[in-house]
Design a protein around this nucleic acid. Sequence first.
DNA 1: GTCTATAGTACGATAGAC
DNA 2: GTCTATCGTACTATAGAC
Lengths: 184, 184
Amino acid sequence: MARWQGGAAERLKEAALGLFQTQGYDGTTVAEIAAAAGVTERTFFRHFTDKREVLFFDQQSFEGTFLNALPASSADPIAAVIAGLGGAAALFGEERRGWSRARQAIIAANPGLQERELLKLSLLAVSLTRELAGRGIDPISAALAAETGVAVFRTTFTTWVAEGETRSFPEIQDEVLERLRALL
Amino acid sequence: MARWQGGAAERLKEAALGLFQTQGYDGTTVAEIAAAAGVTERTFFRHFTDKREVLFFDQQSFEGTFLNALPASSADPIAAVIAGLGGAAALFGEERRGWSRARQAIIAANPGLQERELLKLSLLAVSLTRELAGRGIDPISAALAAETGVAVFRTTFTTWVAEGETRSFPEIQDEVLERLRALL
DNA sequence: GTCTATAGTACGATAGAC
DNA sequence: GTCTATCGTACTATAGAC
């Protein structure tokens, strides 16, 4: 039996999602996930710093999707952040909605996983803030613009994965932005 | 020696903060905190669901401070949320700044504690959203208004506890709101 | 109040890829 | 040979079960 099959991280992610769906998050041990993926517990922790992390995107590529879509320069920080949100739509195509729903159901049932998700979004806001500040925006305005952008993203995503929702990610995002404009 | 000295939760909180400052969060065990407060480990977990919780406000009173300051009715959800923020200033008087700074330094050094703080603020946003939705605001607008309000609070608090900052909480909050208006 | 399962860490050894 | 992914084991602290 090959000790080296490659793609261990991917196998672990798939195995974890399946086990969490049938047994629940708390009802599944790291040892079980590892066994289902054909590796040992020790290997699981080489790929993921902790059990929760197996359910999340790599933070670097996640943030990069938003940062790369930021316009090179802009006087209006809110407009810049909203442009960045456009890049995120690429991550949430129709073919991923099912997977996202399954994942979200697991997270919604577990406060610890919600905490991790919030941390990831908060780190994104910090990166956006830093990027805007580097363009000469004052720190408070930069932070407010970044948080607003993340709020739009969070609201869009939540709606997109809601049961029965059929509109595409960009369609929902447009509506959320419409509501934001109406609020202000 | 009295077996029942009362205020166990308070003693545990004080003991925890002191130990975290001198030994770090990870370097301090629940057993040490309990011993310093004159109780057993078991008692610690009777008062706090987990180790992190010892550093945080009771969520109900924290949320209540904002919800009670919400105006009874308002056509403008953003204005309503901002009114709610006014109530929060009561929690952050000058006499608490030192304690808040010490606490914040510990949280800033530990991702797990940041996660917990984010969860608390997220739960606050959920409560604000529900309150607004109960007043007939559509769910998306309510969520955006609530998130905006929490962003203002977070930004204000972060500035208030920054090293060298001397302005009062309401003064900083006014400036943050000023920046928000300028952004929109 | 006692007991125990499991997450997560530390250090070390081994084996395939190049 | 080097580099990197895997595995072995012993250990502590949290947190929940009894």
